[in-house]
Design a protein around this nucleic acid. Structure first.
Lengths: 234, 234
DNA sequence: TAGTGGTCTAGACCACAGC
DNA sequence: CTGTGGTCTAGACCACTAG
């Protein structure tokens, strides 16, 4: 860490005290002027260092009172939902996409598309994500053509809708649902998997405009998550 | 926003251009010296503002080249794993905990406890989280008594292990796995639910010391998640 | 090599919350 | 009222890298 900048070193030092438990929640960490003396630097530098800890959620700062070690949150964790292709390739398997169906149809009230509040036509694509030679996930995708008219020009024969959208449209908000189902016979046949399956549903918006809905049925794969102390986020 | 500080206003201004789509991914935002002129302030101020955008993941900065609007990540979302009791009560239902089993047993190699790397005895608790009159989740809990000896004094008859641990032990790291199963007959009977179930496994550590493992089988409830544009996290 | 961002300084004034 | 953190300035030098 000697190559890092001074404020990064200070942040790491103080963060280490907190994560090690030497400074428990509620403990007042040194004042900025004390840290100035300890590190022999300007106040702006220690301020930047301690401010970074506050952004990370490790400390809370109060004028006149000082800076205190924060209590860890339990309610939030960082969920890794990798791109399916990246997930498969990171396992060293070959990725393939097989399109099963493609059509344009008018939006209907109700159903999974309702949260997108689509106005005109939807592009509906169905296909299979394949890892090596085995089915990995079955995907049903709806794309709001009013928001993404260019999508109608893509047949999604060789590129999955998620990959195409990622390259062409930015999203600002998403909602996810994870659930468990017993697959219907058609799904079970497509996945070669008849037991319980994980289902991930994802709705994506850009500025209140519904972009796309995806429903991915996994072959009972497990989704793994890691959470660290106060991972933060607003 | 006129009450906010200048660097916050600059951050909000630039962030607005990006989120609105006026500046698409890949677009080069104004140089720092241009922003200095535009806002009539020192470089340190615009640097702080643009740096905040970089921390949020909205932009990427490259020396000599400039600052560019980043492509949104899809890979991370904030997962809300509320306390089960809080979840049930937030739905307006009465919460209850029913202990089914309690015992102390030596740690065994392998199995779900392995990641905790327990040294001595484990406290094993099994029970049911109940919403109103219906089973909500079946929980199997292991507590590492070497790390939390006080837990042996609690019978967990009227308080669930998660609630007790939350009040008595701080954690620094956790790992989660979500999967789907078809319940075995015993589990199906306890949950009054024979179809596919969601399973959440959670391992919790404090400084490399394994604290507890929990396996919660839900009655096919759905876990919901919300993600915003580049919610960040390291 | 020139220009960008990364870092740092030695000040300053202010808002706010404890005392 | 005092002391803390919040903010800002007008410089400076440096590291990296695109051209």
């Amino acid at each position: 860490m000697s190559g890092a900048s001074l404020h990064q070193r200070i942040t790491a030092d103080l963060g280490g005290e907190i994560r090690s438990g030497a400074w428990p929640p509620g403990h007042r960490i040194p004042f900025e002027h004390e840290l100035m003396a300890r590190y022999g630097c300007a106040r702006a530098t220690v301020n930047k260092a301690v401010h970074a800890l506050a952004v990370q959620g490790l400390v809370e700062r109060r004028r006149k009172a000082g800076t205190f070690v924060a209590a860890p949150h339990i309610t939030s964790a960082v969920l890794q939902i990798p791109d399916i292709r990246a997930e498969i390739e990171s396992r060293g398997q070959r990725y393939a996409w097989a399109r099963l169906a493609w059509r344009i149809r008018p939006a209907r009230p109700g159903g999974d598309e309702a949260p997108l509040d689509p106005a005109g036509d939807l592009l509906q694509v169905k296909g299979l994500h394949i890892a090596g030679a085995r089915p990995f996930a079955l995907e049903e995708r709806l794309i709001n053509l009013a928001a993404v008219p260019k999508a109608a020009d893509c047949e999604f024969k060789h590129v999955a809708p998620g990959a195409w959208l990622l390259a062409h449209v930015a999203w600002t908000e998403a909602r996810h649902e994870i659930s468990a189902i017993n697959p219907d016979p058609e799904t079970a046949a497509a996945l070669s998997h008849a037991r319980a399956c994980l289902v991930l549903k994802r709705w994506t918006w850009r500025q209140q405009a519904g972009i796309t809905f995806a429903r991915q049925v996994f072959a009972a794969e497990t989704i793994e998550l890691t959470a660290r102390f106060t991972p933060g986020g607003p």
